[in-house]
Design a protein around this nucleic acid. Structure first.
Length: 424
RNA sequence: GGAAGGGUGGCUGAGCGGUUGAAAGCACCGGUCUUGAAAACCGGCGAGGUAGUAAUACCUCCGUGGGUUCAAAUCCCACCCCUUCCGCCA
């Protein structure tokens, strides 16, 4: 949520910035609502003041044993007038709230301006695209032996966009999770957390998935209004919802492994082959809550933590700064990490690291207490994949393949695989 | 699922329907005292919003949402959550 004060004082520059991300902000409509709100609010408050004062007088008079009937007659009409004003005010306020909750975040000034992913800017490249002296197979072919990767069975059990993994492939998948959690907790200073995989609507509103993107989510049909998490960002960031964090506890850094569930509505026919785009996948997520002045440095640092995973796995990648038109709803700035996939001869997204500024914190009422002032201030939230497990698995299969179709195990993972050097 | 109790400020915890945004204590901040610290004493100390340059004034908030009333933390209804006991279950 944007700062309502900013909308009142500098609405045109807000509208201009939103335009760069393809969001048309109806300024006259907002101003009209805002004017109504202001008028109705002062009117309601005046009536409340009058009622409060007169009620107090009745209390006083009664305690002194005076006849209160004349005073009661005076306030008789007040209730109706107040109810009417309040009802109007609530209606306008509700409309304003809906509007406020559907406006995306403002992009940071360093974000490249552009319409879609074609305008994203390459920031740096690490390693060189893996060169094989044979024709690269893609991960679906490489996973076929031994039914390591079995999509047909998953279709039977559930449907499309699910996978069954077996044997050393399943183990490699698990090893990746352990490796990443260990790296971030022991070397990067994150606290490991375990969280619910079902969340309520308030949590999804807090991080920005609701109200606008319900169609991307799986919703349970039971009595409770619960949703499957699309990312650990939702439960982990909402740890601080409605909290005031003491200054000496800042910053907070959490790392969390969860499954993620996405409906992938609107991506029919896209990445239908293999593991790239699934309804269910695992992710190790990094989340930080920091002071406002630290969040830009934290974004660079957090991105570096995700990059470290790829470096230790010796997987070539590049870092892209997403343009204004390609960023997520809540983000002020996003870096995507894209790993090289020999099977596709292309870089593909494997991590997305974002600074949300105070956008999520305002929706969540997440604050920290500044010892300098003693006052609570909105904190800044960040997160990034560190990394998406399924896609990391794909990258390993395709980059570590041999001419005979066998797969070497990256050095750093061998201790998690019982010393195994090749998948077997 | 059954029974009982309970949700009040950063924490603990009072609160006959009427000048209660809320006693008291802890924590925290400032001061006195002290070489310094502690103790003691004095004072301050919730959040959000509206108007205003500001001082300030006013409004809202005692789990959530309704209701009764001139007036609700206090009465009524529904829901959510927590605790204890019983049952069931991994």
């Amino acid at each position: 949520m944007l700062d309502p004060k900013l909308l009142r004082t500098d609405i045109q520059s807000v509208a201009d910035k939103l335009k760069s991300r393809g969001f048309n902000f109806d300024v006259p409509a907002f101003n009209a609502l805002e004017a109504q709100r202001k008028d109705l609010q002062t009117r309601t408050q005046d009536l409340q003041t009058e009622r409060n004062n007169k009620s107090k007088n009745i209390g006083k008079a009664k305690s002194q044993g005076q006849d209160v009937q004349p005073l009661l007659d005076e306030v008789a009409h007040l209730g109706d007038a107040l109810d009417a004003a309040k009802k109007q005010f609530d209606e306008v306020q509700a409309k304003l709230d809906v509007l406020l909750m559907t406006i995306p975040n403002l992009p940071h000034e360093s974000v490249p301006v552009g319409k879609d992913e074609l305008a994203n800017v390459q920031v740096r490249v690490w390693g060189e695209p893996t060169k094989l002296d044979f024709t690269a197979k893609d991960h679906v072919e490489l996973g076929a032996p031994n039914n390591w990767l079995d999509f047909e069975t998953a279709v039977k059990i559930t449907g499309s966009r699910f996978a069954v993994m077996r044997g050393s492939m399943a183990r490699l998948h698990r090893a990746l999770i352990q490796f990443m959690l260990d790296l971030h907790t022991s070397e990067h200073g994150y606290q490991e957390v375990y969280v619910p995989y079902l969340v309520n609507a308030d949590s999804l509103r807090g991080t920005g998935q609701l109200p606008k993107f319900e169609q991307d989510l799986f919703k349970l049909s039971g009595e409770s209004e619960y949703y499957l998490i699309p990312t650990a960002e939702v439960p982990v960031t909402n740890i601080v919802r409605d909290e005031i964090i003491e200054g000496d506890k800042m910053p907070l850094r959490f790392v969390c492994h969860t499954p993620c569930f996405r409906s992938e509505a609107g991506s029919y026919g896209k990445d239908t082959r293999g593991m790239i785009r699934q309804h269910q996948f695992e992710k190790v997520e990094l989340v930080q809550m920091v002071k406002a002045e630290d969040s830009w440095a934290a974004l660079e640092q957090l991105t570096g933590h995700a990059e470290k995973v790829l470096q230790k796995l010796k997987l070539p990648y590049r870092v892209m700064a997403l343009c204004t038109g390609d960023m997520g709803f809540s983000s002020a700035k996003t870096y995507d990490l894209e790993v090289w996939l020999p099977g596709q001869q292309a870089y593909r997204e494997i991590s997305s690291c974002s600074n949300f500024g105070d956008f999520q914190a305002r929706r969540m009422s997440a604050r920290w207490r500044n010892p300098a002032t003693g006052k609570p201030e909105l904190l800044h939230t960040l997160n990034g994949s560190g990394l998406a497990i399924g896609r990391t698995l794909v990258a390993i299969l395709e980059n570590y393949q041999e001419a005979d179709g066998s797969i070497r195990v990256p050095d750093i993972l061998q201790k998690y695989m019982g010393g195994m050097e090749k998948l077997g």
